[in-house]
Design a protein around this nucleic acid. Structure first.
Length: 542
RNA sequence: GGGCCUGUAGCUUAGUCAGGUAGAGCGCCGGGCUUUUAACCCGGUGGCCGUGGGUUCGAAUCCCAUCAGGCCCGCCA
């Protein structure tokens, strides 16, 4: 019986990774609709023990996208974010002062937030709130608005009481499950509930008895007391807490990081424990980690985490969502704020501008691929149901932001090129702001930086034919005769080129070699205008 | 020590459950367009499917071994 169940779970897991079927979010929604009754509750859970990092976004977005897919499929769905505020402080982290030693073992909801020096502050905010707030702010920027549930309040409201009582009643069975599935050995005085001692810490507290609803204890200081299971006076150990909350909140789907998902991990023990506690668990679903790499030369020496807020100061929110939406759950994502951003942004922009369509005679496999990409496009929108329009490209903006210091000049340029009519929309202004932040940061890839030459590179000089050299010299002379406007620059280039019998394409290539040391670049006349008449003439004569 | 996931073109990857000539996007090369805002359009190049065995008429796919990267089995979420 047990074995049979296990096989089913494995098979679901396999199907989940099988994106060939369709997008994982839509697949999961469909699967949920087929296998259980609504309402459907997608859930994420994170411990606010310190700064949130980019990896947490996968936890959040995986669940949120499944929630959206449920809504899109017409299902009754909610998305909840359970903050593990009842979890204890494990140790004094590097960013905390030694003062936190006294709080080890205490729930994060009940200890003070650190101030900028890492000391306990007295502004009344809890440690949990302190780290949660900026994260929620980041989530709002990517269009994620979860129902936030502080776990310590669920304890305080007595919602855990029944589960705690059952856990104590079935303590032996639960112990057996944990020992057999995880392979761990629990010692003899193991108890499925951890009361807080006299100093508010759950470390070193020994349970001495249970009389519903009180768990009696003695702590390391020799004090004794009783914890009311209907209040936040103690908590279930993690593996049981997780299983219990599935029942309490009616969770139907909770993607878990691969640490939980590994064989013998907390997901595997959670499933049977949840059943023992009288509820039906969600099906196993595991996502891979996001790894940060190539974040620039600084990152390797100075730690390579990047926070959601820092990420969002340089990456457009829909691109961030797309990074999650385009990847299968069981694939690593190598997060890179450098050159990879261009590649992903290009891909996203193409997908937006040119949504794939099914065609007559297309193979089944290709049709599936079309569906999957359309779903990724849909789920990347910060606003559900928003139909994105093609916009100014990421690359183009990167270039403009580098050659033009004034935002006004950029808007004018975009109007000239037909990318913009009237005043820039707020979203576009934000995009430019992020782009400027990115360019200023260490993350911006070196090879995307535009380095305007003040003299022609030696290598380039060797490549140039005599004709081409003459062309550049002549161009310098002609430039000296005109008003320095884009139109005149442009026509002068063409006129001079034809004088030398150089084709249009070649004349530009030669110019780019001279100006940038590469084959192509931003519109030559615009670039020359930015360089300025004198510098341009100097360059061409060099 | 035990177990799980991943390894496919220069890059990102689809295909692996149910074995049947390895698909795509980017890059690159060529052509077209011609005021080139890294644009756009068309065409092409490119893979001993980590490695070695086995099963099979036939293996990226199944089995065994092995290498590489990551993770879990320490109440750690």
């Amino acid at each position: 019986m047990k074995l049979k169940r296990y096989r089913l779970e494995v098979s679901f897991e396999w199907l989940l990774s099988e994106v060939g079927t369709m997008h994982w979010a839509d697949f999961t929604a469909q699967r949920l609709a087929e296998t259980r009754e609504g309402p459907y509750v997608s859930c994420s859970g994170i411990t606010p023990s310190g700064d949130f990092h980019i990896g947490h976004l996968r936890e959040i977005l995986s669940a949120e996208m499944i929630h959206r897919a449920c809504l899109d499929a017409g299902l009754d769905s909610r998305y909840i974010f359970i903050v593990d505020s009842m979890d204890p402080l494990r140790r004094v982290y590097p960013f905390l002062s030694e003062d936190y030693q006294q709080y080890i073992g205490c729930p994060l909801a009940f200890i003070p937030a650190p101030d900028s020096d890492g000391r306990p502050s007295s502004d009344g905010r809890s440690y949990a709130e302190h780290f949660l707030e900026p994260f929620l702010q980041a989530l709002a920027e990517i269009g994620v608005f979860p129902e936030v549930i502080m776990n310590h309040l669920t304890y305080a409201d007595g919602l855990f009481a029944e589960k705690i009582d059952s856990a104590i009643e079935y303590a032996n069975e639960i112990k057996e499950i944990i020992e057999s599935i995880s392979g761990r050995e629990l010692d003899d005085n193991w108890f499925p509930y951890k009361p807080l001692g006299s100093d508010g810490s759950m470390d070193g507290v020994t349970v001495t008895g249970y009389e519903k609803p009180y768990v009696h204890w003695t702590d390391k200081n020799g004090n004794s007391g009783s914890a009311d299971i209907r209040k936040a006076e103690g908590k279930l150990p993690w593996r049981i807490d997780w299983a219990a909350r599935w029942g309490i909140h009616g969770v139907t789907c909770e993607p878990a990081g691969k640490d939980h998902g590994a064989a013998g991990g907390s997901f595997d023990t959670g499933l049977p424990i949840c059943r023992i506690l009288g509820s039906s668990p969600p099906e196993k679903m595991v996502y891979e980690w996001i790894q940060v790499k190539g974040a620039g030369p600084m990152s390797s020496s100075s730690g390579n985490t990047i926070g959601p807020l820092e990420t969002l100061s340089i990456v457009p929110p829909e691109i961030l969502r797309y990074i999650i939406a385009r990847s299968k759950m069981n694939r690593h994502i190598e997060f890179d704020t450098g050159g990879m951003m261009f590649v992903i942004a290009d891909e996203y922009e193409r997908l937006v501008a040119n949504p794939p369509k099914k065609k007559e005679g297309m193979s089944k496999r290709k049709e599936i691929s079309v569906d999957t990409r359309l779903a990724a496009r849909r789920l990347s929108q910060t606003e559900r149901g928003f139909e994105p329009k093609g916009t100014i490209s990421f690359r183009h903006l990167a270039m403009l932001a580098q050659i033009k210091n004034s935002d006004t000049d950029i808007w004018n340029s975009l109007r000239n090129s037909g990318h913009l009519s009237g005043e820039p929309h707020k979203a576009l202004q934000q995009r430019l702001l992020r782009m400027r932040n990115w360019i200023r940061s260490i993350h911006f890839p070196e090879d995307a930086r535009i380095h305007i030459r003040n003299k022609i590179d030696d290598e380039v000089r060797e490549k140039l034919s005599e004709e081409q050299k003459k062309f550049l010299k002549k161009l310098a002379i002609e430039f000296g005769k005109i008003d320095w406007t884009e139109d005149l620059i442009s026509s002068t280039i063409r006129n001079t080129a034809s004088e030398f019998g150089i084709e249009g394409r070649e004349s530009y290539t030669v110019l780019y070699w001279a100006m940038l040391g590469r084959n192509n670049g931003p519109k030559a006349s615009a670039l020359l205008l930015e360089i300025g008449l004198e510098d341009a003439i100097d360059l061409l004569n060099s």
